[in-house]
Amino acid sequence: MRISGIGVILDKSRKDKFVLKDIRRADDLIKMAVLAAYDAFVDSGLDNSAKDNLGLILATAFGPHVTTFRFLDEILDYGDANVSPTLFSHSVHNAANSYISSNLGIHGPTLTLTNFSASFYQALLVAQSWLNEGRCENILVGSVEQYGKEMEYILSGVAPELNYKEGSAFFLVSVGECLKKYCSICVLPYRDEFASGFSLATSLLEDKSNKGTQF
């Protein structure tokens, strides 16, 4: 499969009025994912007709934990019967994909998956299998993580070696002809090392040699 679009968001304070007007109520995790997916789609040069069967795969380790903790605040402060439905609906892992699909007008297959390690690698494997099956010709595949002090406390205790950051990276992967092509990518099902979405995006954006790569 080919990578024809890349979007990377590491700065959640970015003010992109066109995209953000529809996500102003969303949490930072959702905003980062929507912006990265939007950038990757625009970067690919695909037109809107591609959206009807555009696939969408999002990987995350911890999902919207910041919003989950805010929802727990509501339970503790106001009781079971007085919690915010908005916070609850945004605490579900696939809320980010919902925002992406509704904002970009995507009507193809959408999947959110989670794993504490290598979730982005799993997402790429799914993308490759969907393309092989002809389930869709173009897929937005990406990852997102959000920083939160509660998770920082937990991870510093159980996995102090982890460099815990936040951001989102998305790629537009295709089998058909593309206006732009960063590289071809072959996901090897039995490779032992995993790379993150960020490291792949960074290396591709720095190296425009368009050489094929194995991941």
């Binding site: 999902g63 579900v92 696939n94 959110t112 998956l113 794993n115 690698y121 494997l125 490779r191």
Partner: peptide, 10 residues
């Protein structure tokens, strides 16, 4: 296995 996936599509 490398094929270990938790789907969270609500």
């Amino acid at each position: 296995t490398k094929f270990c996936c938790t789907v969270v599509n609500a």
